[in-house]
Design a protein around this nucleic acid. Sequence first.
DNA 1: AAGCTACACAACCGCCCCCTG
DNA 2: CCAGGGGGCGGTTGTGTAGCT
Length: 299
Amino acid sequence: MGRAPCCDKANVKKGPWSPEEDKQLKEYMEKHGTGGNWIALPQKAGLRRCGKSCRLRWLNYLRPNIKHGDFSDEEDRIICSLFANIGSRWSIIAAQLPGRTDNDIKNYWNTKLKKRLMGQPTSHRKPHHQQQKKHQLQEQQQQQQQFFPSSFAVTAPFSSSAPDLEGIPISHLLNSLVAHPTHQSGNLIVFGGDHHSCSSSDGSSIQIGYGRDFNHGLYNGRENMGFESHLYGGLETEKLLLGGGGGGCEASSIGYSFGEVKPTIACPTDACHGLYLDGRSGAATDTSFRNIASAMYHC
DNA sequence: AAGCTACACAACCGCCCCCTG
DNA sequence: CCAGGGGGCGGTTGTGTAGCT
């Protein structure tokens, strides 16, 4: 038996809200509030709308202090950073941006940020002059640099058969791991590079930019290598500190050798579900990442 | 000027979580 | 403890608009 519908679909108006309906809902909300029941609200307010539709309209458009329009660079950065850490938990991300709604942020991400960070054209309309294309390309490169300033900029394809990873951009290592997953790669969680979440055909996966399912840590007894808990948008996540102590991946920290990293990659256990590598900052992280990528190729 | 296309954003759908009785 | 229902959320679709041909 299916669930009873929340409202009588046949007698409910759908589609865009008219100014009159907006006014009616706003006035009712200002006088009475939801009364703890959105489903009953439309009837009380004299609206021929589904309660959920009223809720959405209120939360996303009518309620006070809603910000619409241009997102600032700071907001962009916050969204990207949180998306990298917790994925598409729009409500959590919205909670960090006063005046912004989850729907707004979701739309903004889907229509602009995602394309921008994936290197797709961001212009409002198709350019039709070479000059514009050139300018657009430069703009994209600048924007990528702005968000991921270390070595994440994409340049050339990476051959999966090449064991020597020195000098190969991290983004290509990432891409290659996505394209050629190993049985170990299912245990690697990276954030900070491109924002992909990819699965291979056999079900193993590399999750990039998403760490919430990663719960357990390894502590190998060595100072500055272990797991550290972080709160991102109210969600606790943990990451393996390959980059050194304190703040995670510091520029001055060391890269771990294959021997040190391999047990973690090769032998996931209940106590060690995988790696969580902060790839956002600096050369030391690159070294760590290269070690892991190298380990995966050798395993 | 008309038709086409791409884009932005509002709104809907349906699933899941969690509270309550 | 369990079932039912409302609320919340993320994904998807629909619609209006602006630029291009």
